[in-house]
């Protein structure tokens, strides 16, 4: 599992969850929905994958529950400082890869990232 100082790439599900939570605190379905949008990385995941990943992210200290609920069953999650650092490190890594791909002419010119 990812940690803030880990240099290994994050899995798509982990990255999508951390990215979704970077914007705002969210509950499970909101995270799933956000992850499935283009800005969330178009990552499809069901509740099993979502809560399994959240469970591991909470144990690794990258995500935590806010304690806020708008329904007994709908809990909200937020990024910790370590989680923010982990997602930032991944973005930097991906950015370097995208720059490299661009310099190799692998990204069509009309696409802007």
């Amino acid at each position: 599992m990812a940690t803030a100082d880990s240099s290994s790439p994050l899995t798509p599900a982990v990255f999508a969850i951390l990215l979704a939570l970077a914007e705002d605190n969210k509950h499970g379905y909101a995270i799933m929905k956000e992850a499935n949008t283009p800005k969330g990385g178009c990552v499809s995941m069901g509740p099993g994958t979502l809560y399994g990943t959240l469970d591991r992210l909470m144990r690794d200290g990258l995500v935590e529950e806010t304690g806020m609920t708008d329904n007994e069953r709908r809990r909200y999650y937020r990024l910790t400082a370590d989680g923010r650092a982990a997602v930032s490190a991944e973005v930097v890594r991906l950015d370097a890869a995208v720059s490299s791909a661009r310099s190799l002419g692998l990204i069509p010119k009309r696409v802007r990232s």
């Binding site: 499970g28 379905y29 499809s44 995941m45 069901g46 509740p47 979502l50 809560y51 069953r73």
Partner: peptide, 30 residues
Amino acid sequence: YAPQMRQTLRDALTDRVSRRPYFLNLIARD
């Protein structure tokens, strides 16, 4: 997590934007 997972399913089923066949397929695979 079971109560939260059920709630997530309920949210998806009642979400008008969500494509139901796609979501049911996703749930089965998940």
